[in-house]
Design a binder for these strands. Structure first.
Lengths: 225, 225
DNA sequence: TCGAGTTAGTTCATATTTGCAACTAATTAA
DNA sequence: TTAATTAGTTGCAAATATGAACTAACTCGA
């Protein structure tokens, strides 16, 4: 009855060499076979309980990654997006530590600096821009960036992640006060960063209840963005 | 090819007697004929350029209302929502002044206090909750509530709107400073609220560029929510 | 006409938050 | 042992936010 093409796409982001990178895959099938595009595909009503489920399936089957943080971004639609006809794409975004990508046994995943992800099919460029915009604005008043860090990390490392996303330096004392206020971290007792030619930093990890749950502040970390 | 039912639903909100109200309509067709539900319907690829367009069409044809502020909320999906099968609903929310509803020549529109909107078909209850949650959280750091006011209004009126949405009293001085900072209002010269047994208040209206465009602050208006 | 009542709008002193510089601490490399 | 470097803390000045108390401007009723 409906001629609408229903798809789900996932914007999988990592932080590599100080910048947000997005996961792209070469398309197997038309349209645009062989072209780099966001992981995604047609919803399978028999296999997917809902679109969130579908996004998890796309991630698992196409990249082998299981992301702890996966959130719906928004839905893109219309007749101009897909040459096959009127389509809907429910878009999700995921944040994972860069290490996860290397460990996953899916070498066909290509990580590209978000600014350099150009010439993509469909409206994938616009989708990535919307996802980056969302991550930036959400990062300024939440714990979102911790999902880009690994199992454990130091406060200076976390600060560098925030600064990379927000694109500006943050005062060390203010940053630490803000993270304290979010109340999301617990120190890994006795564990310090080692091997550096300076005072070692304390290692922290996410408190259990924040593994999949954001924490918010009522004041932005930095004035802009 | 696809057996997915693609719909758009709209959560149309107003502020009446100090509380958020949602627009409901009696359904003409199965499923749930005669039952109150959100205005919405199946996407028509021939008539709708995209889902935003479809939402405008639903509003216009079913309620006769043209809302200046219409934003995508999120997409609901799955096999459990609609008895007819696996469905997607791209949900939009709109804010309009209460007067607009009375003026519209669609008496079949029923306004219901959001807390009392129970026994709705599909997952419309959850959808309304999500919309109210979004409006609340967005209101605490943006100009969103002005869309619930009419053409012109006083600062005390606007403050009462914010307080009704956020559910707590706001300090008058802080409120006025915050609104000043948003830089969205211009005073209607010489125009004052009249007829009240006290000092008349200055009337304001939205600056042109903010008719459809939110303005944001980096600090929440109140600590909670 | 005048005073009481009521709400609009402003002022100012106090409290809170923030940003910064300067400090101490702990490591490696030479 | 000392220089270099980064981690983490302290204290203070500057910027912001808050709320009580004030002044302003209207209507109503005596």
């Amino acid at each position: 009855m409906s001629e609408i093409i229903c798809t789900v796409d996932v914007v999988l982001l990592t932080l590599q060499s100080g910048a947000l990178n997005v996961a792209l895959l070469r398309r197997d099938h038309p349209p645009f076979p062989g072209v780099l595009a966001l992981p995604g595909g047609v919803i399978q009503p028999d296999a997917d309980r809902d679109t969130h489920d579908a996004a998890l399936r796309m991630l698992a089957t196409k990249t082998g990654i299981e992301s702890p943080y996966l959130e719906q971004l928004t839905t893109f639609s219309g007749s101009g997006r897909d040459p096959r006809g009127w389509s809907i794409s429910v878009v999700y975004y995921a944040l994972v530590p860069a290490e996860i990508i290397d460990c996953s046994a899916h070498p066909e995943v290509t990580m590209v600096h978000v600014e350099q992800a150009r010439g993509l099919p469909f409206d994938h460029r616009r989708i990535i821009e919307a996802a980056v915009e969302r991550v930036r604005s959400k990062s300024s008043y939440s714990s979102l960036p911790v999902y880009l860090c690994g199992e454990s990390f130091t406060l200076p490392q976390l600060q560098r992640v925030y600064e990379a996303i927000l694109g500006e330096p943050i005062n060390k004392v203010s940053f630490r006060r803000k993270i304290e206020e979010l109340d999301i971290l617990e120190s890994v007792e006795g564990a310090m960063e080692t091997g550096k030619a300076h005072r070692p930093a304390q290692l922290y990890r996410l408190k259990k209840r924040f593994r999949r749950q954001l924490s918010l502040t009522d004041r932005a970390l930095v004035a802009s963005s």
